[in-house]
Design a protein around this nucleic acid. Structure first.
Length: 270
DNA sequence: CTGAGCACCTGAGGGC
DNA sequence: TGCCCTCAGGTGCTCA
């Protein structure tokens, strides 16, 4: 699924729905990770007052003091269309007063749609323990240095922990560690101050560049208008096992950490 | 409290 | 063509 840059791209794509009023709701009978089916009717007749992103969650606020939380899991997709065809894996759809449909499609169903009263949003179990946004000032080397001290875990897995920093998924941590020249297997507590400064900057740069390019389109990711992102063309290590490192020409290796693929260049990264 | 591993699902692609 | 295996943008839960 989409990482932060992909969600940000989708958010920008559905921003024009602001001020729209919900007319109809569709919900498939299949289970998502959270079952909010019974609550969803509450937004019928309500108007969207804001559309935001927090970590990998899309938050849509309505004027009746309810907020819709959308998470795309690994395979979720959101599209805007003037027709709703109820295709395979369409699990939620919502028609607005301008006749447009917002359609949520998720083959693996690792995602969810939930509805809460807006004042309870921050205490939602998926949102309450989130760390800082990678592009915020709160994510800086002083902060990270504190978090990594005594951390007995490899740096790659550590940085994918949403309590440390949100939205840095498997593509972008692999790319960020390459950019920062740090081995993914290095113990988090053993990073030097210089490496931590470097890593913070590399994550910010990687995420910001990916947002500019509309995210990474691998397999079937596309934005709300069905367009593809282009950041995958910039990948230095992700998905490039056995290919030449663009910097030094050595072979990119693939290992598994915490059941996720890790790609790195053992010459460039120390 | 921490870290490791599992669970939740479907679909694509490769080897035989 | 089909079967069996591995792999995939995530994240909460359980167990030692």
């Amino acid at each position: 699924m989409p990482e932060l840059p992909e969600i940000e791209t989708i958010k920008r794509g559905i921003l024009p729905l602001k001020n729209s009023i919900v007319r109809k709701i569709f919900r498939s009978s299949l289970k998502l990770r959270i079952d909010a089916t019974k609550k969803l009717d509450k937004i019928i007749g309500s108007q969207i007052i804001s559309i935001e992103r927090r970590a990998r969650y899309l938050i849509i606020d309505f004027n009746n003091y309810h907020s819709l939380i959308i998470h795309l899991g690994m395979s979720g997709r959101i599209t805007i269309d003037s027709n709703f065809k109820n295709l395979k894996h369409d699990h939620f759809a919502c028609q607005f007063d301008n006749q447009q449909w917002l359609i949520y499609n998720d083959p693996r169903r690792f995602g969810f749609i939930d509805l809460v009263e807006s004042h309870d949003l921050n205490s939602h179990k998926m949102l309450k323990n989130l760390g800082p946004e990678p592009l915020s000032l709160d994510f800086n080397h002083q902060y990270l240095q504190k978090k990594l001290a005594n951390k007995n875990c490899n740096i790659k897995t550590t940085m994918m922990d949403n309590q440390i920093v949100v939205g840095v998924g498997n593509i972008y941590i692999n790319e960020s560690l390459f950019l920062a020249k740090i081995l993914p297997t290095k113990m988090a507590k053993n990073l030097s101050k210089k490496e931590i400064i470097n890593l913070v900057e590399s994550i910010k740069k990687t995420i910001a560049t990916a947002i500019e390019m509309g995210g990474s389109s691998i397999s079937d990711y596309q934005n709300a208008n069905g367009e593809l992102g282009f950041f995958q063309n910039q990948h230095q290590v992700y998905g490039r096992q056995n290919q030449d490192c663009h910097k030094c020409g050595c072979i990119i290796e693939r290992i598994v950490q915490n059941q996720r693929s890790t790609f790195f260049c053992k010459t460039c990264q120390k």
